[in-house]
Design a protein around this nucleic acid. Structure first.
Length: 578
RNA sequence: GCCCACAUAGCUCAGCAGGUAGAGCACGUUCUUGGUAAGAACGGGGUCACCAGUUCGAAUCUGGUUGUGGGCUCCA
């Protein structure tokens, strides 16, 4: 048995102990399920009243008593009949019981608590070493929103106190990097109650980062044979009826608005505009593939409870593109997108990612054979590039299979990254075709893809990945010039001009404050370079450079500094070096 | 949308059991011109998220609304 498996068993046992503790406090508790999860465990309860944080510490100390008593876990095999008697007062357990095909079921008993459970468990409660109850949450029975809502208690558990503390520390570290917190501290963006939830306002500093990313994105796409286009934010409702969105995606779309007797809606996707552009004339096989790219802003209704900072919003800009090609070009196109995706992930400094190939879901459009071929195409593309991938069965979109790439940030948390989706539905609905060599019409293969996802969510991942200390090429302010006394202002402004002429983002801190304060604030703003200039620097036309890392570089000429910074920007360096 | 919690100055938070608000930072003015993470003094700033209700009286109690957070469900 691996250490990880042992840990899982211990966590699961901790869930049972928690259930016993809850039972001792609320004897009429109806129990849901209580599995082990990443870092810990949870158990769902149907209780006579809502739990409070005070209950949590009470339950926690009760658990400690049970652990101290070192009660053995006893497994028993019973018939379903016996089990039904044992759990007569436990409707959720009875429901589970009904779904077990076997005649005999396992039950585990420790102390006064008995639970329907396959096991295994630790030998006795004393083997649970380090745990902490962390939160109370509502959770639907069986994860179904039509079922009753139970109260879930989450706990974390580890083999030793040290590991538990490390985990808690990691959570603290994550909280410090939270993009919502840093977004406010670094003055990057805001969301306003007055304007509406999930609607992002980009401040100048956040806008700089976004613009730099967008410029880079556009250049890179143009290099790779994409055409940049723009399409409107609203379109007639009928268009969305033709596409099927109004039928299948309506829950995520905003209500129509009336304009001169016609109904219009905000676009939830960019694809239709791209199709309309494609269809403005007959297309020859000679001009395929056509790759239309747009930083397209879309609006989707998201239920209020799911909104989250920049990572889940109601209006967002996708780095979208649609590729129209012949089916025999599809594989190369997918290879091209994958290559671009890897390039982007790498450029932005993410080092690990998972690739998922999602196959046909139960409800799907198009012919089975076409699905299989397309799925194969995706697979071949992945293999051609030697990309390790996992199959995510049945997780494709109804209109086609897809590849999703999830990357991890510096704290190992996963983020939805690039996605590549093949679409059999829209080309058919809009009759998107090209004229082949044979002079006849053929239907095109259509690929939807994003490589960053959305600007909003991608920025969230970047903020958290770098903890706000962006690489120079992305930093909103790259150089803060700090004059020691007011008499150094002229020199400071002269440096500022020279840097700005280079296209660098530089600023002089002109306030009559002490150097210490200015450095501290530039440091808190995570400005990569600070140039400190005083009498000495003015006298020999040099600068003194301090890095965000706290490191002090040798006194040097502005030219040599410019050279280093220029190189760091051009190479999109992740680390500061001089 | 559902469960739970929270909402006091631009920010972080005090305000314990109902008697019309405080601190630090930030901001403004003045003094200080200081060499690598906070110089000092003074000052301005809040219809205590919003709407009702209870009460002689509500930031404080009750209900509703809005927003935020932790989850569930759903997703770029």
């Amino acid at each position: 048995m691996t250490e990880e498996e042992k840990l899982e068993i211990m966590r699961h046992s901790a869930a049972h102990v928690m259930a016993e503790a809850v039972q001792s406090i609320f004897p009429d508790t109806k129990f849901g399920i209580g599995p082990s999860i990443e870092n810990g465990f949870y158990y769902d309860f149907d209780l006579p009243r809502s739990l409070t944080p005070d209950d949590l510490s009470l339950i926690g100390s009760k658990m400690n008593e049970i652990i101290a008593a070192d009660m053995p876990f006893v497994r028993q095999e019973v018939t379903k009949e016996e089990a039904r008697r044992l759990f007569a007062a436990q409707p959720y357990k009875l429901e589970l019981l009904d779904e077990i095909p076997d005649e005999k079921v396992g039950v585990y008993r420790q102390g006064s608590f008995i639970d329907l459970c396959r096991g295994p468990h630790v030998d006795s409660t004393g083997e649970i070493k380090a745990f902490k109850l962390v939160s109370i949450a509502g959770a639907y029975w069986r994860g179904d929103e039509h079922q009753p809502m139970l109260q879930r208690i989450y706990g974390v558990a580890f083999v030793a106190k040290k590991a538990l503390d490390e985990h808690l520390k990691k959570l603290e570290e994550a909280a410090k990097r939270d993009h919502r917190k840093l977004g406010a501290e670094l003055d990057l963006y805001s969301i306003h109650e007055e304007a509406g939830p999930g609607l992002v306002h980009w401040h100048p500093k956040g806008a700089v980062i976004r613009r730099v990313i967008e410029d880079f994105w556009k250049d890179e796409h143009i290099k790779r044979g994409y055409d940049i286009i723009y399409t409107p934010h609203i379109a007639k409702l009928d268009l969305w009826k033709t596409s099927g969105h109004w039928e299948f995606y309506r829950d995520n779309m905003y209500s129509p608005m009336e304009i001169e007797g016609q109904e219009y809606v905000l676009k939830p996707m960019n694809c239709l505009g791209h199709i309309l552009i494609y269809k403005t004339r007959l297309r020859s096989y000679r001009e395929l593939p056509l790759r239309y790219a747009e930083l397209g802003t879309v609006y989707r209704y998201e239920r209020s409870g799911v909104l989250l900072g920049l990572s889940r919003v109601r209006g967002f800009t996708q780095d979208d593109a649609h590729i129209f090609c012949r089916f025999d070009q599809l594989e190369d196109e997918v290879v091209g997108v994958l290559d671009l995706a890897r390039f982007m992930i790498d450029t932005f400094g993410f080092t690990t990612y998972r690739v998922l190939l999602s196959t046909r879901p139960e409800k799907y459009a198009g012919a089975l054979k076409v699905w299989e071929e397309a799925t194969d195409t995706l697979r071949r593309a992945l293999e051609k590039l030697d990309v390790a991938y996992e199959i995510d069965p049945g997780e494709g979109v109804f209109y086609g299979p897809k590849i999703d790439i999830k990357f991890e940030d510096a704290l190992g948390r996963g983020w939805q990254g690039p996605t590549i989706q093949i679409d059999f539905n829209l080309p058919q609905r809009f009759d998107v075709t090209y004229i082949g060599e044979d002079g006849r019409e053929h239907s095109v293969a259509m690929v939807h893809r994003t490589v960053l996802g959305s600007m909003e969510r991608f920025l969230a991942s970047l903020i958290e990945h770098y903890g706000g200390a962006f690489p120079v090429w992305l930093a909103p302010l790259q150089v803060m010039i700090i004059p020691i006394a007011d008499r150094h202002l002229d020199y400071a402004h002269q440096l500022e001009d020279e840097l700005r002429n280079e296209g660098m983002r530089a600023k002089v801190d002109t306030r009559s404050e002490r150097v210490n304060l200015k450095i501290r604030q530039a440091q808190l703003d995570k400005v990569p370079y600070m140039l400190i200039v005083g009498d000495k620097e003015v006298a020999d036309s040099t600068i003194s450079v301090r890095l965000r890392s706290g490191e002090q570089a040798a006194s040097q000429s502005l030219d040599s500094f410019k050279r280093s910074v220029r190189a760091a920007i051009a190479s999109r360096a992740k680390d500061l070096e001089l």
